[in-house]
Nucleic acid binder design. Sequence first.
RNA 1: GGAGGGGUGGCUGAGUGGCCGAAAGCACUGGUCUUGAAAACCAGCGAGGGGCGACCCUCCGAGAGUUCGAAUCUCUCCCCCUCCGCCA
Length: 425
Amino acid sequence: MLDLRSLRQNPQAAKALLKIKGYDFDTLRFEELETQRKSLQSLTEELRNERNVKSKSIGKAKAAGEDIAPLVAEVGDLGERLDAVESKFHRLQEEYQAFAQSVPNLPDASVPAGSDEADNVEVDRWGALPEFNFEPKDHVDLGAGGMLDFEAATKITGSRFVVMHGAVARLHRALIQFMLDTHTSKHDYEEVYVPYIVNADSLYGTGQLPKFAEDQFRIDSDADFYLAPTAEVPVTNIYRDEILEAGRLPIKHVCHTPCFRSEAGSYGRDTRGMIRQHQFEKVELVQLVEPGRSWDALEELTDHAREILRALELPFRTVVLCGGDLGFSAAKTYDLEVWLPGQNQYREISSCSNFLDFQARRMQARYRSPETGKPELLHTLNGSALAVGRTLVAIMENYQDGDGRVHVPDVLKPYMAGLDVLDLG
RNA sequence: GGAGGGGUGGCUGAGUGGCCGAAAGCACUGGUCUUGAAAACCAGCGAGGGGCGACCCUCCGAGAGUUCGAAUCUCUCCCCCUCCGCCA
């Protein structure tokens, strides 16, 4: 959520920035809501003040042994008037809240203009593209011998799931271990284990609700529970409604979780293979930092994600998302895109974002500022490092040898119990 | 699942209808003292919102109700603890 106070001061500036994101901010509607809020709020507070003052005087009269009947009569229909104004005010507040919550975060000034991913701007490239003396297969063909079984998954559940067997399942697990170990030992993140089922407040805090309810898997139970779409939700919400001491910052967590996405509205896209699944594993980096530090933190966090790709020797590039491709809560996002020989293109494997205080305001994640002694909103960031399923795909496609085998990257060998070549059968 | 006990400021904890946004202690901040520190003493110290301001409003797990007036009484829900049952 944006800061309403600064929004009030300059709605036109916000409108101009939001246009970069392809969002039409209705300043007239906002100003109308604001005007109504102002008058209803002051009227409500005036009446409440009157009631408080008079009630207090009744108390005093009673304590002094005086007759309170005339005072009680004087309060008269005050309660009814207050109720009427209050309910009007509450209705307006709900409307106002819904409006304010639906406004996306402002993009940073460095975010390029553009409408979709075609307008994203490449900022760097790493690694030479592999050259094959054969026609490289994609991961679906490579796994067709039985290691990747999409039909079995369809039977068990439905489309967009996978069953992995043997060495491929092990390589998938090795990737998780390697990523967690790298971030904890080299990049100074604390590992956390969290619930995979979250409540509505948590999804609201990070911005998935109320606007993106259809993307979530909702659990049919008495409680309002959802399958976590990313570790960002449970991990960031550890600090919801907390006031942290400044000495605890920055908070840096790494967390491995499965992620569940309904993928509503992507029916025709990436239907082949493991690229877009309802369930996939991800290792996520989450940081909560002092407001002045978040831009540096975004660069660092993005490089922590790059480090995994460099260690795995997978060619990749970094793009900065244009306004139209930027997410609802993010002020700026870098995507890392790995080279997939089977598709002959770069595909997203990580997304690293700075949310500034947008999420922190929704979830009231604060720290005590040493300068003022007052609680102030933190800045939140997160990034995938990396999406495990897509990393597995990238390794299979980049490390294939043309003879139905996949070589294990050097850094993963310690995790593979001596296995350094996968025979896909 | 059954029985009982609880949820109060950063933390501990008192408060059963008005003088309570809330005692006391801890923590924290400033001061006195000290070569310095500790101790002691003095003072300050919850959060959110509105208003140019004087000030005002809201918040004692959440929501609804009773009342002129609710942290306090009633109802519903959520969460925590103890015991029993069941269980990885």
